[in-house]
Amino acid sequence: MSFRSRLAISVAVGALVAAAAASPAVAGDDWGGHHEKHPKLYKGVVTADTLLLRSAPHRGSHVIRTAHRGQVVKIFCKTVGQNIQGNPLWYLLPDGTWAWGSARYIKNIGPAPRWC
């Protein structure tokens, strides 16, 4: 496994740990209203017919759930993961479960998400 892959996995694990700690506070957020206790959420819309949302930011990770074309999703943060058709960014989605989706198939609505 390359250093870059190990680094991406380490970043993803750190983000998931931080996200799990923040999930009760974030869950009540209304599409990113600014609150002092937790960070802003962002929005995106799924552009793939069916997008597989995964446990880590690479295609080899476990599929947690799916999202479908036109579905609006909340985005917690972004990180570098496996390059998908020229796009190495992945978004951590807190909707229902904490899962990673390739940014190649999620179009931002509004500002770009912050880094994890």
Rank of each mutant, 00 (worst) to 15 (best):
S10M: 11
V11Q: 09
A12Y: 14
V13K: 13
G14D: 11
L16W: 00
L16I: 00
V17K: 14
S23K: 08
P24G: 04
G28C: 08
D29A: 13
D30H: 14
W31F: 13
G32H: 11
G32L: 15
G32F: 04
G33L: 12
G33T: 09
H34G: 04
H35P: 05
H35D: 01
E36A: 15
K37S: 13
H38Y: 11
H38F: 06
P39Y: 04
P39G: 09
L41V: 03
T47F: 11
L52Y: 13
L52V: 05
L53A: 03
R54Y: 07
S55T: 13
P57A: 04
P57R: 03
G60P: 07
G60A: 11
S61M: 10
H62Y: 13
V63Q: 15
H68Y: 12
G70T: 08
Q71I: 02
Q71D: 15
V73H: 08
K74E: 02
I75F: 06
I75G: 01
C77H: 07
G81L: 05
G81Q: 02
G81N: 08
N83K: 14
Q85P: 04
N87V: 09
P88T: 02
L89R: 06
L89Y: 14
W90H: 02
W90V: 02
Y91T: 04
L92E: 01
L92N: 08
G96M: 04
T97K: 14
W98T: 04
A99E: 01
W100C: 01
G101A: 08
G101V: 01
S102L: 11
S102H: 03
A103K: 04
A103M: 09
